[in-house]
């Protein structure tokens, strides 16, 4: 049997008409037997879907016909057994729920580090490495020397930051920025 493609995608992009996108998107998923869940919100799209090579390609083409999603990035993996049974499109307030108003990665966001440069950064003793995932995720695997905030959901993350991280204390890692240029 042909392998199932599992495709994880997200994009922070303003979709004021996100509710109007839902019916046609769901129909497309059903027609092409794409299973899994896509979340739509005013701040963008997020989700993981699975299907045949053909159907996943068709979905990606379909999404990219919307010029706002033309650069949609995604990650794929393969599996023998289909990991989803239903096709769903859900309308949400946030595509990933943190529960803090006014946070917009399109306005201001951290510096992106490519996977090939990551080891060097996290091997620097001055760098505090924080796993932003939930406790049960950290339990099954994480990066060497990563801090586990022990959150049960991502909603708890801002509180963890307030309690445990201090902008003054973690400011001194300026040299990382300089050294980054040679990464």
């Amino acid at each position: 049997m042909a392998q199932t493609v599992v495709c994880a995608l997200y994009e922070f992009v303003t979709l004021d008409d996100y509710a109007a996108i839902k019916p046609s998107l769901l129909k497309f998923m059903l027609d092409h037997e794409v299973r899994g869940t896509l979340l739509l919100a005013q701040e963008g799209i997020n989700g993981t879907v699975a299907g045949s090579r053909q159907s996943i390609d068709a979905l990606l083409d379909y999404l990219r016909t919307d010029s706002r999603l033309k650069d949609l990035s995604y990650k794929e993996s393969y599996t023998d057994t289909p990991p989803f049974l239903r096709s769903r499109v859900k309308l949400k307030r946030e595509i990933v729920t943190m529960g803090v108003e006014g946070i917009d990665p399109k306005q201001s966001v951290g510096t992106y580090i490519k996977p090939k440069d990551w080891n060097k950064l996290i091997s620097d003793p001055e760098v505090l490495l924080v796993d932003t995932r939930n406790d049960y995720e950290v339990q099954v695997g994480t990066f060497k020397n990563a801090v586990n905030p022990h959150t049960e959901s991502f909603r708890e993350f801002p509180e963890y930051v307030k309690q445990h991280l201090d902008p003054q204390k973690h400011k001194k890692s300026r040299h990382v920025l300089y050294r980054r240029n040679s990464l």
């Binding site: 796993d131 932003t132 995720e137 902008p167």
Partner: peptide
């Protein structure tokens, strides 16, 4: 910071920036 596919970090680093952290990766 890191997470499964990168999406949570977009929000968490955006949040840290807003909280006054200057260098966030």
């Amino acid at each position: 910071m890191f997470c499964t596919g990168g999406i949570r970090c977009e929000k968490s680093t955006a949040y840290l920036k807003e909280q006054g952290f200057e260098e966030v990766y």
